[in-house]
Design a protein around this nucleic acid. Structure first.
Lengths: 235, 235
DNA sequence: CTTACTATGTTTAGCGG
DNA sequence: CCCGCTAAACATAGTAA
């Protein structure tokens, strides 16, 4: 699609075909990922090629098998739709909260804000300790969590003396997303994960500078793709 | 990606999310199809959505299951690679022949040419009668077939008296591809099919105006997508 | 909700290094 | 083979009917 319109037919030239394959398979996987994230849906793509021993798969071979297998025996019960509504409710809550947080961030100095965010997230109990049981608990839990975050933020806004003890960690390097955003996303992911129980697989290890590692369940299983998490500290 | 750069995150607004989904899932399926055809490879994509009871699948649910299932137990023997080389050889032969035919077509009047093409394809024995056995026969068979076609074309070029008997069929309506091209593609498909034996499924019925119907094996199983065949007569 | 339109962002074919 | 560049083709967010 550049410099010349290509016909939709098999490319004769070996080199050109391979080049096109490499470019397009990359673009295709990106598109699948975007669709899945933007619309919050499950999707997968599998591409065989004679160029690689393993086929190109998104989001992961295991997830692909699960997704494909699911539609073979979809009972079309409203259990699925119900779960989806719950997911959307959670996503909306988190997204709105994130919006407010981001809005408020812009009214304050950035580095100090991030210092607080970091303390708020690393100092308290880790996200992995929330131990959420069912969806009604989920709603309450996130309300509580966001409320707590809001209180800490309020505290910061007042010109109260900064805790200057040895416990104060260094400022977090500025990345694309703030630690709070990452924390919110982690919480969201955990909550969504809780709605869709599945065999204990695809665990993602999260490393955070200066803090303890967290084990986050990977609800979408974007293996080999830390960029999905939108944060450079995920490994 | 238009009028405004969109962030890679879940779309909060329900309407916007649904709209984006509908647009993007369409584009995604088109991309998968293009990649598969351009590079002559197997690929599949599955997208669940809460908007449709059935998931969006390319190229077909059955093929998707097969493709996914295959990569679970790929033995990585060179049998696969060998078959691929054979496929590519066939594709190259047919593509080159098609090129020549198309080139020659452009040197002559279009409608008369198509009349001949039609006679050449419908008057002789049908493609389904070729009864090809193995790959060496395949090579010889296509050479023979193309040679016969070339002779008929030569005959047409000479100002010899046209056979004006009752056997002369009416002119074929001009479509995107000429009957000869369709015939060549059918032959190619049949030859490729012969290389990859599989359970007898996904048969595509081909209707032709004024001629008998043919049963063509659908090597890729592009169900519900006659446009893949590039010809309006395929049903 | 659909369709159609279009301005703009994204993808990629062809080249050169 | 790989990479990066660039212009042309393509995809699509927002809008209007």
């Amino acid at each position: 699609m550049a410099r010349k319109k290509v016909q939709l037919q098999w490319i004769m030239d070996d080199t050109a075909r391979r080049t096109t394959y490499k470019k397009r398979v990359k673009g295709l996987m990106k598109k699948v990922k975007e669709l899945s994230i933007l619309c919050g849906i499950e999707a997968c793509a599998v591409v065989y090629s004679p160029y690689d021993p393993q086929p190109e798969v998104w989001p992961s071979p295991m997830e692909a098998v699960r997704v494909i297998g699911e539609f073979k025996c979809r009972p079309e019960n409203d259990q699925t739709k119900k779960r989806f509504n719950q997911e959307n409710y959670i996503r909306q809550r988190v997204a709105k909260a994130k919006d407010q947080v981001v809005k408020q961030q812009k009214k304050n100095r950035r580095t100090e804000m991030e210092n607080l965010m970091y303390q708020c997230q690393a100092g308290g109990k880790g996200l992995q300790d929330l131990n959420i049981k069912d969806s009604s608990d989920l709603m309450w839990s996130i309300d509580d969590r966001l409320k707590a975050v809001g209180q800490k933020m309020e505290y910061f806004h007042h010109p109260a003396p900064q805790p200057s003890g040895a416990a104060a960690p260094a400022a977090v390097p500025v990345a694309q997303k703030t630690p709070l955003e990452v924390a919110l996303e982690s919480l969201e992911n955990q909550m969504l994960m809780d709605l869709t129980p599945r065999p204990t697989d695809s665990l993602v290890t999260v490393g955070y500078p200066g803090g303890q590692d967290m084990m986050l369940p990977g609800p979408y299983g974007h293996y080999e793709d830390p960029s999905f998490w939108g944060h450079p500290f995920f490994t």
